[in-house]
Amino acid sequence: MKTINNFEEAAANELLVNENHSEINTTDNLASSACLIRLSGVHKRYQLGKTTVNALNGVSFSINRGEFTAIAGPSGSGKTTILNLIGCIDDPTSGTVLVKGKNHQFMKDREASIFRNQTLGYIFQNFNLIPVLSVYENIEYPLRIGKIKIDRHTKEKIYSLIEDVGLSSYTKQRPDKLSGGQRQRVAVARALVCDPDIVMADEPTANLDHNTGLEILNLMQKLNRRLGTTFVISTHSEMIIEKSRRVIRVLDGKIESDTGEDYEYQNKTDYDTVDSERATCSA
């Protein structure tokens, strides 16, 4: 599989760097150094009463920084399980899941929580907004959880995000006063407020009509391009699959197909942090 080969190449290049202290080749190493997510031989088994369900059977792939990836498949194929593993909210039965080079299984709760807060953003099918908080407060809340000081700068950032998602007139509204599309826009803004490296979206358009779903998708793509945030979307929506630059198809807990790593974004971007990330991704 192509992704696996890339990792092997990256590891070889890293070895070369370590041993010879030489300059490394550009394209391949950019790709490897920018990798954010790596799944290697991941198995996940659930116990459903007396039945053991094999949700994932030896899944391996990697996702690079800035990719806009759809994980597609029918219901029960294992796409949400993959998302949960990447999102550090579930543990694999075997295999390794590295996010930003870190395996959350070895983290304590506090460390894992901080990691999720600062590295990952979540968009859920059912929006999962906090009903007692206004639009502004819902978006601000992850910053509060992350104990980030809410000063003028952060407030400006929140209002800028609200403007980006087109909800400037609704800042004080509670979620129950918003339409489904508006709620999902709040969820998008909330997912992005801590400047995460990765945003995970679990069937983000499933509860929305076609046009609203398309709006949300366009919004996520716009933010992906503008902010460089990596988006991983689990979906069975053909609209999302068509518009994603990379599609990993899952069936019965296995990777059925992968359109391959998405270099489009990376080739257009100047990385400031290549050196530090290289070490992480090759670990």
Binding site: I130, P131, R190
Partner: peptide
């Protein structure tokens, strides 16, 4: 329940 999952997902610690 789902709200609890969401809060934990977005970084709330067990202590929190």
């Amino acid at each position: 329940m789902r709200e609890i999952g969401t809060l934990r997902a977005i970084g709330m610690t067990k202590t929190g």
